[in-house]
Design a protein around this nucleic acid. Structure first.
Lengths: 350, 350
DNA sequence: CTCCCTTCTGAACGCGCGTTAGTCCCATTG
DNA sequence: CAATGGGACTAACGCGCGTTCAGAAGGGAG
């Protein structure tokens, strides 16, 4: 079933059918209805490829997930507390807007080619890229394609470095720095003076921002901290568990009364480690995390943390892409979404 | 950059370029290399739309997730323990095979149209559909399109009903029945004679199979059970918690010594409920679940359960689709994958 | 009745590629 | 030497649609 068949059945020319489908204003109501009836009746669907070839878009956006995990290690991405809700929201929002979503994982440097290809092959009209460890060099290449593109969590400085403030590019960040400051102020407000921090990976923007907030706040409030109070984590549980165990392995009065972990996974591991070393949370040590992953609210004790506005950010990303694609609006945008301090049971007044 | 540009640069005709790209045998090595060099040099990528229009496929498969949740309730699909690893594996496997994946959620009856459309609009070469509550009527419509199609977890009887044993259709199931039997045999082998069951939704295949296995095993081993031993769950925590509380609200010696829950979520809720009623797991009551969701291994006590071969099934689904798409092989297939009994701490010898 | 303007329609071209039928050239054979 | 054959290529058509431009049909004014 092609548009020509519809045209014949409706007794008009093919171009009239096309005009009806594309909402041209100069089609009289009678003709329009007649054509639409035939289309309805025969369940006609325009061929996307032909449409795209003739200049229309594909009504498809790409969602690229940059991860340092390895392909085929099984089930890593969507069980990741950070990626899962993004994928979820993006697909949901896009589908509701009548767009299809092409999801692709990016593990290796070569996989970045796939992103470019998706654009060059005209598979997608626009793209969203997420992931903590993006290669700004490769990203720069992709941006040079000059296609509607939104990045979630990306260091603006890296952009400037490649002078890529193009009109088709948008960046959506969460305000991790301010969120981390809030967490620190909360701990300090509870009377804690000796506060430790488990860092995330320092090659990620969020890792750096959260750590930076820790230092700034400690300094601002004139609180002393030593190198040993800064634990070198990597966002993962194992290392955090070990590092915390090492922290606890000193004179009782040398142990900090509070711990700010750069993410919930490490915070939970820290609590385990603290327990296994015979101390209690929050009675002996207060722990606060970052991310508000689902399990944090169910853990015992439930974890105080900072919620990321993932849902809002993802939705905004799709909206921007869809606008760019449909209206052809090209506007550089850099929005920062506020986090939210979630107070639960894992912190206690000193 | 079009193939014609490449042709000019290489000093050949456009069709020669096309033949090189499509591995035609009658191109001498010299010409082939020359063309490939130019392609490489100018980063030429064939336009997918034009390609699809000319008869080639799109190298894209659709992944449709049928869920009864509601759109825009935020973050349901990929945080679902069942869907997440499927999405994960499908995307990973397909990407590794050079295929793109279009992910789409199906919430309402109308959304099924989107599935049909994706095919009719030639967006995808083949599709995978997953979800527990498929509408076999709609599925039948989709199958009638006669496109490569794989369903994960689908009742074969429903297929027969619509007489749809077409060559392009495959069904991949997990052997829930046998898995549930194994779980029951394990409990019985531990000496339990009074065993309760919390059912899943009876309008799902897995819900029915797991329940059926319970009844069959109880009968086979001549164990008595009463209506009150069969709790009406719906795969969700809340109802399970309540139902179990009701079960425990009777004379101590009337309470079953073991409980087989139709999924892990309900099993975990049951353990909570049992605890809240002053009994212990596994000392007073043994509990076994089904699914082996990630949290089950970390729960205290860790949950004995039945692992679903989700990874294997998803991978097989992609392989079948890819084969059908590339080789044009059309073979009806119905494979059943075995489950695996995972023994942990939540069950104890009576 | 003619002219012009508005409203509507269709023929034709182009999008970029796959493929078929056919051409050209050179080596081989009778 | 002519005829044959095959290897290496190309011209041309078709895929299904969007869009432009010219022109038809209708309607009102002069």
């Amino acid at each position: 079933m092609r548009s020509e068949d519809i045209a014949k059945l409706a007794g008009v020319s093919r171009s009239t059918v096309s005009r009806v489908l594309n909402n041209y204003p100069d089609i009289p109501q009678r003709t329009r209805e007649k054509v639409l009836r035939i289309i309805e009746q025969y369940h006609y669907e325009p061929n996307t490829s032909a449409r795209a070839l003739a200049g229309k878009g594909t009504d498809t956006i790409g969602l690229f997930i940059v991860s340092m995990a390895e392909r085929h290690t099984g089930n890593r991405i969507y069980q990741n507390h950070y990626f899962a809700p993004i994928v979820d929201t993006v697909i949901d929002t896009a589908n509701a807007a009548g767009f299809y979503v092409l999801v692709h994982t990016v593990y290796t440097q070569d996989d970045y080619l796939k992103v470019k290809q998706a654009f060059q092959q005209r598979r997608i009209d626009g793209g969203i890229i997420v992931g903590t460890q993006k290669d700004s060099e490769r990203i720069a290449e992709i941006c040079r394609l000059d296609k509607p593109f939104v990045m979630i969590d990306f260091d603006l400085e890296a952009l400037a470095e490649h002078s890529l403030n193009r009109d088709t590019l948008s960046v959506i960040n969460s305000d991790d720095y301010e969120g981390a400051c809030e967490a620190m102020r909360y701990l300090i407000g509870l009377g804690h003076r000796r506060i430790a921090h488990i860092r995330g990976r320092m090659n990620t923007l969020s890792g750096r921002q959260r750590f930076q907030a820790y230092e700034t706040m400690m300094n601002e409030y004139g609180l002393p901290y030593e190198d040993s109070d800064i634990l070198d984590g990597n966002f993962l549980k194992n290392a955090a568990y070990e590092e915390v165990a090492r922290l606890l392995n000193q004179a009782r009065d040398q142990i900090p009364s509070a711990l700010f972990a750069a993410n919930d996974d490490m915070a939970l591991a820290a609590i385990q480690s603290i327990r296994d070393n015979g101390l209690r949370v929050p009675d002996d040590i207060s722990v606060i995390g970052f991310d508000d992953i689902p399990i944090s609210s169910q853990f015992i004790p439930s974890l105080s943390t900072v919620r990321l506005p993932i849902y809002e950010m993802s939705k905004e990303a799709v909206n921007q892409i869809v606008n760019m694609c449909t209206q052809g609006t090209t506007s550089f945008n850099s929005s920062t979404f506020p986090t939210e301090l979630i107070i639960r049971e894992s912190c206690k007044r000193l």
